[in-house]
Design a protein around this nucleic acid. Structure first.
Length: 758
DNA sequence: AGCACGCCGACT
DNA sequence: GTCGGCGTGCTC
């Protein structure tokens, strides 16, 4: 590696396109023409060698490189590997005027790729997912309404002009305008040439308003104050001594977790470092942002998929430069290249939305801990109902723990009671028991709001033929088709397939023999309307509304009192408060407990707690009634007694006894293809070859060829592998996969199950 | 991820 | 006889 000793070429050197002047590469870099390893944003599991660009480059520098026919953003990773013919190396086009990726960030990306078994290159893609990074920061082409109406008007052109006319002052990015108008870039270009759109350079990104950590703040309770002190100490230790910490911040709804971790953020600002707050759902952010503003006097930088291109680019750059003091974002914000990240908060850490299940698979909560540990930051995992793994980690002393015991202010936790359906089962075809109906009637009479919770969309989950006994199935997968009466469609909840509601059995063709089994929210609303004819009833479920904004408006109207009785699915469990609500009735508390899911108990506990917590705000004591056939089930029992600690302990014990200990992680080999027999043979071969996993002390879980199932016409087998952490895991899994040459048309893909990191 | 190359079914 | 499906392989 004779090149590595060379210093950077003397600069500054202007770039090829008349962009900003680029200074010399920092110390430790390589001069122009030296071979350097570059992490490119494509799914290869290694770096590719390039020749350093004009002006040289150093580790962490963002480089524009050609890859095949395309130009992409890569990151200089180190000296060239030399394993590719030097004569064939292509030169990197230029070094970009962006802050270099820090050594901590690079270490994080390496470890994260290793941990999630993701091709290394894809980490570059995750870290550079912002529009316009290749353009100079100060200049960007934008469009606005021009003087000339175009000579020729086409429907596509009209759509564009309509948008532009609607907001005459708005500046549009060409791509943004094309996307929102639903037209191609050619249409935009045409209008520009015709003079109907005017092109101009937009000024550099607007700076973020500075946050004031010392802004006057709300008084905290004693418990909150104590929690805040503990959090501040963690952040200070991370800043001063480089000491990593992970802390479970545990407190019931209303105990003020947000106030406490905002104090941690304030300390982080005072230390001059950046803070990141991860939230599971964008829908929640408006309430959060209001609180944030109140605490710091200005809004944070925001990162999520709903943000505009300009917003995201601005946020990315500000995170990289260090200008953004606090970023609030969805899980992917974790891959922003912060200049100096001192605190990561994962709010509602138990939330499933942190699990990225498409493309690069990861669990943002776990990656937050990883990033914090490599970047000497404090990590705070906040939850009212911690996930089992976080709780176990806290018990084991790997995470610290801060508890906020009481609900702050006058708010009172609702009383949770069971309605044992063995004693009070409603008649066939009805699902509201008499005691529950009575409780609802009382609220209605007192002009209070009640909620009936049923986590099932549609009218009935199952349509079955009384003649032949066959259920109406989705033609593409193994799931039942669910009748949605209001829409007049049968819908598959697994793949989204839709069909009209049949009058004859699809199987035996007999007319009028189809029976609807079980309730969905639509059917429950029907029963409720029959029982309470005068009540204003509203259904809240995710398929009722077209867009997130419509759902939000609807929830707000209902929360404000537009309905007396709310029938809702999971949608009501999250985020929004219902200040008028004093009763929650859970129609089927056992719903999530059926089936063999390892996390059934844990999830049921979390969901029921959340739903119950919707009842009784401020001065009103609320009540939650759980209809159940299994009041003695540990999860239900824990809800009744409130003894979360014993419950989590028993879940952890049960997991261990079941041979699925929490102290390992799972990889899932997904074998799939269009031919059942081939998929089967491949799965069997993989199962037989499990001794290849020995180097990682990994073992196959469950009976060797696992159940085969069909998804979108392809057969799949999922083999679960348990493996302790360690450097041997990844090579062993790769060897395992490589050793079995799949049958033609059969794919073997090995993923980490992102939920099961302990 | 894109994109090109390459080998088997329904059509001008 | 071709057009076009997507399986396979490559990108320094």
């Amino acid at each position: 590696m004779t090149d590595s000793g060379e210093g950077p070429a003397p600069g500054p050197v202007g770039d090829l396109f008349g962009g900003p002047e680029i200074g010399p590469a920092p110390e430790g870099g390589w001069g122009e023409g030296a071979a350097v390893a570059v992490l490119v944003p494509i799914p290869v599991d290694r770096t590719l060698d390039y020749l350093a660009p004009v002006g040289g480059c150093a580790p962490g520098d963002w480089l524009e490189v050609e890859i095949g026919p395309r130009v992409m953003l890569g990151v200089c990773w180190g000296p060239g590997t030399g394993d590719f013919d030097r004569a064939k190396l292509r030169p990197a086009l230029r070094r970009l005027d962006l802050p270099p990726v820090s050594a901590e960030m690079r270490a994080f990306l390496e470890r994260a790729a290793d941990y999630t078994l993701t091709d290394f290159g894809m980490m570059a893609r995750l870290a550079s997912r912002a529009p316009g990074l290749r353009e100079a920061p100060g200049a960007r082409r934008a469009l606005r309404r021009g003087g000339e109406p175009p000579a020729r008007l086409t429907p596509a052109r009209e759509k564009v002009l309509e948008l532009v006319e609607a907001e005459p002052d708005r500046l549009w990015l060409p791509t943004e305008l094309a996307r929102e108008a639903g037209v191609s870039a050619a249409v935009i270009k045409g209008l520009e040439t015709a003079g109907a759109l005017e092109s101009l350079e937009v000024p550099r990104d607007r700076p973020y308003a500075p946050l004031d950590p010392a802004a006057p703040r709300r008084a905290l309770s004693e418990a909150q104050e104590e929690g805040a002190r503990a959090m501040r100490a963690k952040v200070a230790a991370a800043a001063r001594e480089g000491r990593f910490s992970a802390t479970l911040l545990h407190g019931v709804t209303g105990s003020g977790k947000t106030e406490v971790y905002l104090e941690a953020a304030a300390e982080c600002l005072a230390q001059g470092r950046q803070a990141l707050v991860l939230l599971p759902e964008i829908a929640l952010t408006s309430a959060f942002l209001a609180r944030f503003r109140e605490r710091f006097g200005a809004p944070p930088a925001e990162w999520h998929s709903a943000a505009s291109e300009i917003e995201r680019r601005r946020c990315w750059r500000a995170a990289a430069s260090g200008e953004a003091q606090v970023v609030v974002g969805a899980r992917s914000a974790l891959f922003l290249p912060f200049a100096d990240l001192g605190l990561i908060v994962v709010d509602e850490e138990h939330d499933g939305a942190y699990k990225q299940e498409e493309g690069v698979l990861y669990h943002a909560r776990d990656m937050a801990v990883l990033r914090g540990s490599l970047g000497r930051a404090a990590v705070v995992l906040a939850s009212a109902t911690p996930s089992l793994e976080t709780w176990v980690n806290a018990q084991a002393g790997r995470y610290d723990r801060v508890d906020l015991p009481e609900r702050f202010g006058p708010a009172v936790l609702p009383e949770i009671k069971a309605l044992d359906l063995r004693d009070c089962a409603p008649e066939t075809g009805r699902w509201i028991s008499d005691p529950l109906a009575q409780a609802v009637a009382e609220r209605l009479q007192r002009k209070e709001q009640a909620l009936l919770f049923l986590n099932r969309r549609g009218y009935a989950p199952l349509t079955m033929c009384r003649a032949c006994g066959d259920p109406v199935m989705c033609p593409h997968c193994d799931a039942w088709l669910v009748e949605h009466r209001r829409r007049g469609r049968m819908v598959c909840h697994q793949c989204g397939h839709e069909a009209p509601i049949p009058s004859a059995c699809p199987s035996c063709k007999r007319e009028d023999k189809l029976a609807l089994i079980g309730p969905g929210v639509e059917r429950l609303a029907e029963e409720a309307q029959e029982r309470f004819p005068d009540a204003r009833i509203a259904i809240l479920s995710s398929d009722m509304a077209e867009s997130a904004a419509v759902v939000k408006a609807r929830v707000e109207a209902i929360a404000a009192g537009e309905a007396d009785l709310v029938i809702g699915t999971q949608l009501v469990a999250k985020g929004h408060n219902f200040p008028l609500l004093t009763l929650v009735g859970v129609i089927d508390a056992d719903l999530g407990l059926r089936g063999g899911d390892l996390r059934a108990g844990e999830r049921t506990f979390q969901l029921m707690r959340q739903v119950a917590g919707r009842a009784g705000r401020a001065d009103r004591p609320g009540e939650a009634l759980l209809q159940t056939y299994a009041p003695d089930h540990p999860a239900i029992d824990a809800l009744l007694t409130g003894d979360e600690e014993s419950f989590l302990q028993s879940e952890a014990d049960a997991r261990r006894e079941a041979g699925a200990p929490p102290f390992g992680r799972y990889a899932a080999a997904i074998v799939s293809g269009p031919h059942e027999d081939r998929v089967w043979r491949t799965a069997e071969a993989l199962a037989r070859a499990q001794d290849l996993l020995a180097p990682a002390r990994a073992e196959l879980l469950g009976p060797a060829p696992a159940p085969i199932y069909r998804v979108r016409g392809r057969f799949r087998v999922r083999l679960l592998v348990k493996a302790p952490r360690g450097p041997a895991l990844q090579p062993a899994l790769r060897a395992w996969r490589a050793a079995v040459r799949p049958e033609p048309q059969v794919m073997v893909r090995i993923d980490i199950d992102p939920q099961s990191f302990f």
